[in-house]
Nucleic acid binder design. Structure first.
Lengths: 243, 243, 243, 243
DNA sequence: CATGAATGAGCGTTCATTCAT
DNA sequence: CATGAATGAACGCTCATTCAT
């Protein structure tokens, strides 16, 4: 992972992050919801159990130290296994995060898929989705914050993160488009706005969960938090030109 | 700087970022707008010129590789000087960033100080400030993005960053408070909302400037960008309860 | 370890020698006399063997180059291992020396504990102890000379060394006190004298073992050496006021 | 001076300490007593004055930090001159110490030359010399302690130091020889004993002057100190075989 | 002749990854 | 299949010495 830190810039040369194509995206489609409960309910196969233990340990260590500050050694100590075992399950530290991120992505995509119900205002639908996003972020913040870190530092990872963001942005842009058809926010560029709202969501969640975040210490009220997000996000769209 | 990355977590040991008081804050009062053009207009003294060259080089390298991925060697190669000379001017890579960040902060605080003019709507005032923020971010994004990186990874830096954020959040919360007195956004918590808006600003700017950001490649229109930010931010506040 | 050299002066900043309590004091109780032969008799576990190899290599390199002139790279080359493995066993070059010194100290304290036998003249007892000291110094001179170097250069180390010296000085002062009660050396200050004798022992041993010492080349006779030390040290105490 | 530290061992290769022959031993024969009063009484020529200022500053810095821990920069800051000026007067840091040491040596040799007066007991003569040695050591301890440090670390310096010691040892051995002819200390080897006494003197003086020495803090009484040295040294010789 | 900025080799230390057992 | 010792490239930082001004 020295590489991960050092390798990123296009201008740099030395070590080798796995090429995009080498990465095991497919592998990730494990049963939804299996991610967060790790070591208690033993899955059928021993290997799977170890894999879960590693992931659970990573979560703990990422939460404590952040991704870039954590070491494989530390994670495996938490997982009560030897370092060597790590590489039986993951090709690299990056790949571990990739898998965790992919799980989060799957969960998110599945749960956030809420088609507009008949007669539902798109804004209401948007708020529902916001609630889900917040919920999932709270569950998996050590992973998402880690992904955020890596996306700022590693090119390969940044590209994947960018793709995930694009899905979110696309979805929100779509909603904004719908809203505009209903007369809302006529002067706004749906894509730019979606990008900004996405940033707000992500980074607010980051700042409200990270160790040194805005309200670290004084833990914030969950409902107030989500109310704030919903109000800001929806009012930023749900306005009409004055007449 | 390996330390900087490794030392962050509470569980870990040292840190050697200089105390606030040690920092050359005074030195920062250079003529506004002089910051980013460095190496062309040579200052009187040889030493000062080198300092500027280092800062200019750092800017280039940070923009290209990101802060965590850049090395002192790389910066000094860009500055066309030997590695050793770096340490005549800065105690460490962190301190370099600290100085750059401090300069940005000073610039920001000076320019963003726009007291509410008589009869001016607070929302209008807010929008003016947004414009300035965007402007300065665009000028100094390699530095601000660097600071963002470091704040995610290094405790000492995070604390300083947190303080700067708090100023912004405080100011925005104040504006929101004013707006509420005028009947705007009655149900919103000013502090939470300010935190979220601050996150939006910062992270949107980040995502619109970073190498792998949302519109990398397809460079976005400057005016559209700022229009978007203004609309979102102000509409998220400037609403009234339906009657 | 540049630090070790640079950090010493009161005016200078940090030091990172581990606190006394962190040191593996317990670990030291290895069978007496096993210390200096390391790499031949391989211990059960792989790790322990490496540790011994490192210590043996350090001894060789310290003897050849002196502590301050030796580098971890050189030591590990002698140990036929990679540099990195050093840090699995020791946090720093200082800590390695600390462990070696501590081992020496333990050996010394154990063997030098010779309570005065009934009817034994304290001077005789003193001479016995001198013999033991000489013996151990000869076995471990690369280490003790290293410690001497470090104690001249590094504050933290100097303090530990000072403590060890104090034990010796205290013991000798005690003997001198006893001797005075028997009518010996009435006008002498026991503490000052003990300090001086301790210096004589230490530094004579140093000068008789170091590369560039008094008789380098012309190796001195072991028995003559020890006879000289005994005669000088005991006669300096065992005199009575002329009457 | 990286060299000085690194270069010493015969086995080592890289940098180059000045060959013995290159060193300016002759240059040192300046008027005795000029050494310690530096910056107050200005010598005729400006260059000489600067030279004295540098030496005075070195003394201060060596006393504070020890030789190996001091830097040219620090010395020249104390001397209130630029770094560059140092090299106008000395070829290297080592050469500075060499000159200082040489001055000490000259002073010592001149003052300690006390031929045995008619009817004077050699032991008395020896005690007189001890007093002078102590006196000079106290005046110049920052230099002598520095020389001691360097002699432990640098081959070239060690050789010179060794030569100086040899003179002392030779002289003392001579005295012991005389004493033996008078019936004193018949069983002792004059050379070994002289070496040991020399070590005692040197290292006791070191330990009674160095920052972290035996009585640091509780400053010792000057007369008691010298009485102790005299008693120990002379009694270690001035004994006769029991009849 | 002074200045102090610049040079650059050198060393300590870290940690992802490999591999012998 | 597990273990954890070993590897080694990489990077931050120091400071004696040089040299342009």
């Amino acid at each position: 992972m020295k590489p991960a830190i050092k390798e990123a810039a296009g201008a740099l040369k030395k070590t080798r992050l796995p090429r995009q194509s080498e990465l095991p995206l497919a592998k990730t489609a494990q049963p939804i919801g299996a991610g967060s409960r790790a070591s208690s309910d033993l899955p059928a196969k021993k290997g799977d159990r170890t894999r879960l233990q590693i992931k659970a340990a990573a979560r703990v260590i990422f939460a404590r130290d952040g991704f870039l500050n954590s070491t494989i050694a530390e994670i495996m100590k938490e997982a009560q296994r030897s370092i060597g075992v790590f590489y039986r399950y993951y090709k690299s530290k990056d790949e571990l995060l990739l898998e965790l991120t992919e799980e989060f992505r799957q969960k998110l995509l599945q749960q956030i898929h809420l088609p507009l119900r008949p007669n539902q205002d798109p804004i209401d639908n948007f708020e529902e989705k916001l609630g889900i996003f917040w919920q999932l972020y709270m569950e998996d913040w050590p992973i998402v914050n880690s992904a955020l870190q890596m996306s700022m530092v590693d090119e390969a990872f940044a590209k994947r993160w960018h793709d995930l963001r694009q899905q979110g942005i696309g979805a929100i842009a779509h909603i904004i488009g719908k809203a505009r058809k209903l007369g809302y926010c006529p002067t706004i560029d749906p894509h730019y706005a979606a990008s900004a709202l996405c940033s707000m969501l992500e980074f607010t969640c980051y700042n409200w969960t990270s160790r040194w975040g805005d309200f670290a210490g004084a833990k914030m009220s969950k409902t107030a938090a989500i109310q704030t997000l919903k109000q800001i996000a929806s009012h930023s769209i749900a306005w009409r030109s004055p007449t």
